[in-house]
Simulated scan of single mutants.
Amino acid sequence: MIDTHAHLYDPHFQPDINQHITEIQEAGVNEVWLPNCDLASWDQLVELTTKFPHFVLPMIGLHPTYVKENYILELQGLEALLEKNKVLAIGEIGLDYYWDTTYQKEQIKAFERQCHWALDRKIWIDVHCRKAYGDLIRLLKKPEYRNLNGIIHCFSGDYREAQTLASLGFKLGVGGVITYKNTTLFEAIKDIPLTSIVLETDSPYLSPVPFRGKPNSPKFIPIIAQKLADLYQVPLSDLIEITNQNAQILKTMSGY
């Protein structure tokens, strides 16, 4: 299985990273993809990808909640790193209006600039979106982005938004939220074919039931996979095969 989105460089996983990696691999996870947040997180991310090559793969990007008054300097620094490093994707990037909209315009500018990084390098984007699906879809529908694709990480939109994003060529990332008692996530995605779904954890956040409230780990991917298989009424082996193929398509696109 592939965890397409986990922050293994988070302090929670240190200093016992070797033990965490062992537990993740023993759970049947053979790859973990690491989204970047800002310049400050890059060194820790690269340290992991150097230590565990072929198991953890890097992305680079400025997370929308890290977009502040200095965002242009952050982007310049990240772009300089991008010139020197091979990455799986540009991410995690996007829009987040959940807590604060002070830098809404700057978030949009940062998102579009990073979308062009992906287009220029013919790689995909890993998208964070909370309470901003209207603006996200409006942007992704621009003709200049017609060749963009990637993953909508931790998809939390409604049925119509799921349909639209899938039709634009994006995979929907599904994680621990699918196991929550009162979630409406499956209602939103139940008519989305499995060919548009990938698995993720967003570790150490959003642990699945029965570990909700505790730190998440990619080792819990089997719980998410089993829940999705039950909801889609398909064998677990089929669900794993299809979601792995979906992830591999993106991986191949980036030259990995």
Rank of each mutant, 00 (worst) to 15 (best):
D3W: 02
L8Q: 00
F13Y: 04
F13H: 03
N18L: 12
N18Q: 15
N18V: 11
I21D: 05
I21C: 09
T22A: 14
E23C: 01
E26M: 05
E26G: 00
A27D: 07
N30P: 00
W33S: 08
P35S: 10
W42S: 03
W42L: 01
W42M: 04
Q44S: 15
Q44D: 15
L45Q: 14
V46K: 14
E47A: 15
L48W: 03
T49L: 04
F52T: 09
P53I: 06
L57R: 09
P58M: 01
L62V: 12
T65P: 01
Y66A: 10
V67E: 08
K68N: 12
K68R: 13
E69Q: 13
E69D: 14
N70V: 00
N70H: 13
Y71H: 11
I72K: 15
E74H: 14
E79S: 13
E79R: 13
A80V: 13
L81S: 04
L82R: 09
N85V: 01
N85C: 00
N85F: 00
K86V: 04
A89Y: 02
L95H: 09
D96T: 08
D96W: 02
Y98K: 03
T101P: 00
T102L: 11
K105Y: 00
E106D: 14
Q107M: 15
Q107K: 15
I108H: 05
R113K: 15
Q114G: 10
Q114Y: 13
R121Q: 08
I125R: 04
V127W: 10
V127Y: 05
V127L: 13
K131N: 13
G134V: 00
I137N: 06
L139S: 08
K142C: 08
P143V: 06
R146G: 00
G150H: 03
G150C: 03
C154M: 09
C154N: 09
Y159G: 00
R160T: 12
A162F: 02
T164Y: 01
S167E: 14
L168R: 05
G169Y: 11
F170V: 04
V174C: 06
G175Q: 03
G176F: 07
G176Y: 07
V177Y: 07
I178W: 03
K181R: 15
K181W: 02
N182M: 01
N182Q: 14
N182L: 00
T183F: 06
L185D: 08
L185I: 12
E187Q: 15
I189M: 11
K190Y: 11
D191A: 12
I192W: 02
L194V: 06
L199C: 03
T201M: 02
P204L: 06
P204Y: 10
P208R: 03
P210A: 11
P210D: 08
F211I: 04
G213H: 06
S217R: 03
F220M: 07
I224P: 12
K227V: 10
L228M: 11
L228Q: 05
A229M: 11
P235R: 01
I240D: 09
I240Q: 09
N244L: 07
A247I: 01
A247V: 02
K251T: 09
K251E: 02
M253I: 11
Y256Q: 08
